[in-house]
Nucleic acid binder design. Structure first.
Lengths: 352, 352
DNA sequence: CTGAAAGCGCTTACAG
DNA sequence: CTGAAAGCGCTTACAG
C-alpha cells in the first residue's frame, strides 16, 4: 500500500522572494535560472534546481502572466461530454496541445451559457478558443464577434457554415457518396433511410451526398430511397433503429440496403432485422455513421463511416497554433476532413 | 446563415484604467461596481454595466488573483478521456463545480506525467486537485505528498486504497454480491468468470465479493466457479468476450451463468454464446459491469452493475468543496458508493 | 553574481 | 464619488 505523508509543512515558500532567501541567492538570480537565461554558473543553476525539488516551489503563473508571458492556455468549449466522437476529438486535441505545452481549459457549453463561458475564457486571457460540436449558430456567431473584438483567435470543430468562422469539419456528403458507391457496387438499387429526417444541417448535407451519388449512378433519389423518421422525441437511438427496422421488415417490398443516421440506430436496425427473421447481409445490408466501437460489437460488424478523429485533431491543432501571435485574418480558414468508409460484415451483395 | 463580424477593433480596452477612462469614472469606482460593493448610485452601476456590455471588457483574472482572490479553479487529472464511465463522472462533476462557479482545469495523466501536471496545477494555484480513474499508486502517493505540502486539498475518484488519500470509490465487492444473489435466486449454481483474472485491485475486490456471496449461500468458490482469462494482451474486449464464450460453449459441461469483467466482454460473450447456438437466457445467463449504453444494444439486453455516476459526482463535489478554505485534515475522507444491479433480459432461470 | 527599482492589472484602505 | 498610494508575485533592464 502506498502512503502519502500528510503535510509536514515545510517553511512555507510562497514567492520567489521567499525562495531566493531560502536558497541564499538574489531574487534576480533565481528568476534568471527559472527562465533559462545565459551567463549563470553551472553550480548556481544546480543549487536552484535542487532547492526547487526539495521545496516543491512553483512560481505563481498569475504573476508570470501579468508580466507579459502568454498564458499558454487554450479554452475549449464542448457541446457536451457525452457524445463519443466529440470526446475523442477533445482527447486527441488536448494531447496535441499539451505536447506543445499548452494547457486546456475545458467547459461544457449549455445553451445560453456561451456568453458566460467565453467571458471567463477572456478573463483568463486564453490564447485561443475552440468550439467542438454543434451549437446554436446565432449564439456562436455573437461569441465570435466578441472574440474578434478582443483579438482572440478561434476555431470551430464540427459545426460548419457559420460565416466568418475558422472551421474544421467533416465532409459528410462525401461520406454518404462512399456509402452509396459501396452499396451500388454490391448491386443495391433500393435504399431505406433510417432517421435521416429533419432539418439539421448535418442531415441535409448527408442527403445531398446521397442525391449526388445516386444521380451519378443514374438512379433517381425519389424513386429509390424510402425514408422513415416518424418519431421526434426518442429516448434511445438503439430502440428507435430497431423499431424502424421492424416497420420496414413488415412491408412486403422493402429496400435491400439501409442507411442509418448513426451507429446506434444502425446497430438497433441490425438487431431489428435479425429479430424479424431477415439475415444480414444476405437479405438486407445496413450501414451506420461515426464508426464507434459498437460497430465491432454486432454480429456481423456494422459497416460505417469513420470521422478520422486523428486527422481532424491534427488539422485543428495546426490551425490553432498557426493563429497564435499573428494578427487576426480577415478570411477565415475552412478545412474539410475526408471521412473513410469502413466496410464490415453488415453489407453484402443485394439479394436478387 | 449566421454571421460573425470580423474585428472592428473597438478602442482597445485592456485594463480597468483604460475602462475607467472610457466610462469617465475613477478606477476605484469601477472596481467597486465590479465587486458589488455598497454605497454606489444606481445610475453609476448602470453606466458601468452598460459600458461592460458595449466594450466587452473583462477584468484580467490573473491580476485579480494576485490581489488575493481565490482562483476558483479546480484541477482535474483524468486517467484518460476514452473510458466512458470515467468521462461520465468528469462530465457530472464538472457541471456541479460550474454551478458553484468553479472552473475546471482538465489534464490527462499519462504515466510519468503526473509530476509535471501537478506542478502546473500548483503554479495555477488551483483550489483543489481531483484525480479520476486508476493510476500508479506510488506515483499518486508522491503527488499527494506534494499537494499536502502546499496545503492544496485533493480527492481521488475510483482508485481506492492509497493511504492518506481522500477517496470516493465504488463498492465493487458489493456489486458482485448483488450479481451472485440475483443469479443464485434464479437457481444458478455454476458460474463462469470471464476475464476476471490478474492482480488488478479492482478485480481482486470483485472476486472477494463473489467469494463472500457464495459462502453466504453455502456454495464453495473453488467448486462452483470456473475462470477463463488466458489472453494477457487484448486488442478488443468485445472479441475477447466472444472468444471466451466460444471456449466455454465447446465444453460438454459448462456453467449456466457467466459473469464478465465489463460490459464489452459481456456483450461479446452474449454474441459468442448465441453464435454457438446457445440461447440467452434460456441456456445461459450473462452479466456485465458498468451499465454502459451498450447494455441496451443487445438482444436480450445485458444485466449489469451501475456505477451510480450521479451520486459519485455529488459526493465528490461535496467533499471537494467542504475542504476549501479549511485547514487540511489529518484523517482522510473515505466514501464508498453503493452500486446498483440493473436487471435485463440476459439473465434468467437456470436450465435444469 | 547582487540589489534597488519600475511596472504588469488589479483591489483596498485613506483622505478629500 | 475622486485621486493618490501601496502592494500582490513576478521579470527585466540598470548600475554595481
Amino acid at each position: 500500500m502506498s502512503k502519502a505523508s500528510p503535510s509536514t509543512p515545510l517553511p512555507q515558500i510562497r514567492s520567489t522572494a521567499d525562495f531566493a532567501r531560502h536558497v541564499g541567492l538574489a531574487r534576480t538570480t533565481v528568476s534568471r535560472v527559472l527562465n533559462g537565461q545565459p551567463g549563470l554558473k553551472a553550480k548556481t543553476i544546480e543549487r536552484v534546481q535542487a532547492a526547487m525539488e526539495a521545496t516543491g516551489f512553483t512560481p505563481n503563473a498569475y504573476a508570470l502572466h501579468l508580466k507579459g508571458k502568454r498564458t499558454a492556455t487554450i479554452g475549449i468549449c464542448m457541446e457536451d461530454l457525452l457524445t463519443p466522437p466529440a470526446v475523442r476529438k477533445l482527447a486527441a486535441l488536448q494531447r496535441l496541445l499539451r505536447e506543445r505545452n499548452y494547457a486546456s481549459l475545458i467547459e461544457v457549453l449549455d445553451p445560453g451559457e456561451s456568453r458566460r463561458v467565453v467571458r471567463h475564457f477572456l478573463s483568463m486571457r486564453v490564447d485561443a478558443v475552440v468550439f467542438i460540436g454543434h451549437f446554436i449558430p446565432e449564439e456562436i456567431a455573437q461569441r465570435l464577434t466578441e472574440l474578434n473584438a478582443h483579438g482572440t483567435p478561434h476555431l470551430i470543430i464540427d459545426h460548419a457554415g457559420i460565416e466568418g468562422a475558422n472551421t474544421v469539419s467533416l465532409d459528410r456528403a462525401s461520406g454518404m457518396v462512399a456509402v452509396i458507391d459501396h452499396l451500388v457496387s454490391l448491386g443495391h438499387k433500393n435504399f431505406g433511410l433510417l432517421a435521416l429526417g429533419g432539418t439539421a444541417r448535418t442531415v441535409q448535407e448527408r442527403l445531398q451526398g446521397v442525391h449526388a451519388a445516386l444521380a451519378r449512378h443514374q438512379l433517381d433519389f425519389d424513386a429509390c430511397t424510402h425514408s422513415r423518421d416518424h418519431l421526434h422525441v426518442r429516448t434511445s437511438d438503439f430502440e428507435y433503429g430497431r423499431a424502424l427496422a421492424l416497420i420496414f421488415a413488415a412491408e412486403k417490398k422493402h429496400p435491400t440496403a439501409y442507411i442509418a443516421r448513426n451507429d446506434e440506430i444502425g446497430v438497433g436496425a441490425l438487431h431489428g432485422f435479425q429479430a424479424a427473421g431477415l439475415r444480414v447481409p444476405q437479405d438486407v445490408s445496413v450501414t451506420g455513421f461515426n464508426n464507434q466501437d459498437i460497430c465491432a460489437m454486432t454480429t456481423p460488424g456494422l459497416t460505417s463511416v469513420d470521422q478520422q478523429v486523428a486527422i481532424t485533431a491534427e488539422t485543428a491543432a495546426e490551425l490553432i497554433l498557426s493563429q497564435l501571435n499573428q494578427p487576426l485574418r480577415r478570411k477565415p480558414w475552412v478545412r474539410t476532413i475526408e471521412p473513410q468508409l469502413i466496410i464490415r460484415g453488415s453489407t453484402g451483395p443485394a439479394r436478387r
